[in-house]
Each structure stands twice: as structure tokens, then as C-alpha cells.
């Protein structure tokens, strides 16, 4: 698909002097998805498809994980008042709950981060704004995931 450099602007001289001429051309509208120096590569690929699929699948899994988590933490066995250091220590003694919490952490963080990434793509208008917002988002995501994972695996119930 060839894109012509001189997109017809549709603004021609009407009556009297024209506003635009050779030295002062009418603004040209950038054709969509044109390869420029800033974006030389084709943007085709399966990444967005996998991202879209991940949102659906992780969403389904998260419904089970999060609702189960809330039920255990807030409703069953005396509700939220039972949650304390001893309760967490007891739960993380079992690999089942370690894996549950790990899966919840990773899926929720990646799901949320990917959602925010699409929000930034849809709403940030300037390339630089996008870049900064995404940089901030990815930093926060990686930090939270790493910190959470570290805590789940190195949790010491005998800490003083």
C-alpha cells in the first residue's frame, strides 16, 4: 500500500487571495500507520493478541482467586479480626497458599498493568507523555511483583 507524500488537503483558493501558497503550504495530515524515522518497524505481530487473550484468561482465574481470598480473609472463621502475623505465618507454611498468593500477585499485577497500558495508549496523546507514563507503570509493576514474590518465598515466621 503506497501512501502519497502530498495528501490532498482539500483547501483550495476560493475567491480573492488564497491563504496557502507554495511557501506557506496547507497543513498536511499524517496518513495513519505510516512508517517514519521514529517508527520504522512494522507494528504487526502477535503481542497484542496474546495481551488480549491474557486479559480474558487471567480475568477468569482472578475471579476465583480473589473471591476465594476475600472469603477466607474477611468472612470465614471470625472475619477480618483473625488476620494477624500468626494467621499469615500459618497460611504461608503451606505451599498451597504460597502458590495461591503468588498466582494472585502475578496475575493481578500483570492484568492491572496491561489494562493501564491500554488506557495510556487510548488516552495519552503525545508520544512523550505515553513514554513517561508507561515507564512509571512498568517500574511500579516490576517493583511490586518482585517485592511480593520475595516476601512470599523468604517469609520467616520466627522473625523478632
Amino acid at each position: 500500500m503506497s501512501t502519497t507524500e502530498t495528501t490532498a488537503s482539500g483547501i483550495g483558493p476560493v475567491e480573492g487571495a488564497a491563504l496557502y501558497d507554495v511557501d506557506n503550504p496547507a497543513p498536511v495530515i499524517e496518513p495513519p500507520r505510516k512508517r517514519t524515522k521514529k517508527t520504522p518497524k512494522s507494528t504487526r505481530g502477535n503481542f497484542e493478541m496474546y495481551g488480549w487473550l491474557f486479559m480474558r484468561l487471567s480475568g477468569i482465574v482472578l475471579v476465583v482467586l480473589v473471591l476465594g481470598h476475600l472469603l477466607i480473609q474477611l468472612v470465614l472463621d471470625g472475619g477480618v479480626s483473625k488476620v494477624g502475623f500468626a494467621f499469615v505465618a500459618g497460611r504461608w507454611a503451606s505451599p498451597w497458599w504460597q502458590i495461591w498468593d503468588l498466582a494472585m500477585l502475578w496475575l493481578a499485577m500483570l492484568h492491572g498493568a496491561n489494562g493501564l497500558r491500554t488506557v495510556i495508549n487510548d488516552y495519552a496523546e503525545r508520544t512523550n507523555t505515553r513514554l513517561w507514563l508507561k515507564g512509571l507503570l512498568y517500574t511500579a509493576t516490576v517493583f511490586t511483583i518482585l517485592l511480593g514474590t520475595l516476601v512470599i518465598f523468604t517469609f520467616d515466621p520466627n522473625i523478632r
Binding site: S42, R44, F47, E48, T118, D122
Partner: peptide, 12 residues
């Protein structure tokens, strides 16, 4: 063509 970054996956 529609598997592009700006293809069908941007549909909300």
C-alpha cells in the same frame, strides 16, 4: 494486516 498493534485488538 489486522493483527497490527493498531488493529482489531484496540477494539474495546
Amino acid at each position: 494486516v489486522l493483527n497490527d498493534k493498531d488493529g482489531v485488538w484496540r477494539c474495546r
